[in-house]
């Protein structure tokens, strides 16, 4: 499997995960690791914005519904800061209007929980190629 190169010259591209669900933050980084990526997890948009990972993140895996700043709101904030990056939205809500809206707003991918590792990998590949 040929993986795209990470930004900043690192061997393994960094994927950041922002989700208020602990089980996602717990399991997803391990899977991403198995898939050959470096991964970091944040419990909220605010925590991610406050971290030093923004610049190194090649792709953001972002939950839509979160207490405080929601996923789409974080996207707006990043865009406002000029720190746009490929984003794969993940959500447990089967809501087509939300899906259409976020995809239109330059989302690289949209995954409905629960998703398979295959679907996740293709979405990541797509996102990294687009960038």
């Amino acid at each position: 499997m040929e993986l795209p190169k990470a930004r900043g010259g690192s061997e393994r591209p960094l994927l950041s995960v922002v989700d208020d669900d602990e089980s996602v933050r717990e399991s997803l980084p391990d899977l991403l690791g198995e898939l050959g990526f470096a991964a970091r997890a944040f419990s909220s948009a605010e925590e991610f914005l406050a971290s030093d990972c923004l610049a190194q993140t090649s792709c953001l895996i972002l939950d839509i519904a979160m207490p405080g700043m929601t996923g789409p709101e974080l996207y707006q904030e990043l865009k406002r800061r000029g720190q746009e990056m490929p984003i794969i939205f993940i959500t447990g809500q089967r809501d087509e209007t939300v899906r259409a809206r976020v995809l239109k707003q330059a989302a690289a991918g949209f995954l409905l929980k629960p998703f398979s590792d295959g679907a996740l990998l293709s979405a990541i590949k797509m996102a990294l190629q687009d960038s």
């Binding site: 669900d21 089980s23 996602v24 717990e26 399991s27 997803l28 391990d30 899977l31 198995e34 519904a65 447990g92 809500q93 089967r94 929980k113 629960p114 998703f115 398979s116 590792d117």
Partner: peptide, 18 residues
């Protein structure tokens, strides 16, 4: 509830895949 169940389900699938 779907959302509620989806979260552990999502964890189950991810963990199982891993």
């Amino acid at each position: 509830i779907a959302h509620e169940v989806n979260q552990p389900l999502s964890g189950i699938i991810t963990n199982a895949s891993t």
